[in-house]
Amino acid sequence: MTFVSIRDLRVAFDGVQVLHGVDLDIRQGEAVGLVGESGCGKSVTWLAALGLLPGKAKVSGSVRLDGQELVGAPRPAIEKVRGKRIAMIFQDPSSSLNPVQRVGKQIMESLRLHRGLKGRDARAEAIRLLDMVGIPSAATRVDLYPHEFSGGQCQRIMIAMALAGEPDLLIADEPTTALDATIQAQILDLLGTIRRETGMAMVFISHDLGAVSVVCDRAVVMYAGRIVEANNIRSLFSAPRHPYTAGLFAAIPDIDADRGRLVPIHGTVPDPKNLPTGCAFSPRCPRATAFCQTDRPHLRPQSGGGDVACFQPVAAPKAFPALRQEALA
């Protein structure tokens, strides 16, 4: 069942359009990865949906949560959704926590706002949440300040705070980017465990394709403010169809392959003030034709599954699984 439905979401800052009509559905309980390079609009999509952008941002389109429209909704209505139905965690936990307030108190504030818990009940629940996200001896550390925890632990505390409202959807915006490799692995593992235990849906925003592949069911690739490809993880990673997606995979060193030269994508991400006509990726695309420079492709469902916005997609593997079965038989 669709929980959040985004239709034709557009965002402009000072007259510069940065999001050019995004359509995206999040079903109950699923984990969706949102990938792309800086400035592609992956974070802006959700900041706009939750009304977290500054006043100068012009947002249009529709974001429906269980049928309730969020774009242009009055503040009290959005505040009932934020933190309660949809919670969000960010890249840098230490700047999201209040440095002069004990962590337990910050979690209890969330519990009071979203679940009406007070006093001893709230404290017991805060300790339970800290325990759940893997803070050792939570009962004694609930009264410590954020600086008394490490970066990884602060991210755990942020996750505990996000879970306080028992949200149906968690938006995790680069939650592991600032963390060390072994701590990153811990947090990804924790997010997986929480999802199994609570059935909560998750949107995982990241430029780290590896991390996305590990925690998500499907992924959406964005480029210059538009979705260019969407598919389940297995298909997307084994057979990317959009040349940009294929280029991203080729640019990342493969840990099991030869240590050969990397294959970069030529050129740079376009300036949002000065987007190329036609497909925004065409100036960097090895497959682009003259047509790609004048006309813009729309996101279309493909016969083999997934959606792609490209006139010249990379060929899908032809009935590869069937061949394999024959070979096995």
Partner: peptide
């Protein structure tokens, strides 16, 4: 543990060495 922490597509969360404790 460090090498195992590199996420690999298709592997999911299985078989990764998750170190306990803090950096």
């Amino acid at each position: 543990a460090l090498v195992s922490s590199i996420p690999k597509p298709g592997q999911g969360l299985h078989g990764r060495i998750i170190l306990q404790g803090e950096p």
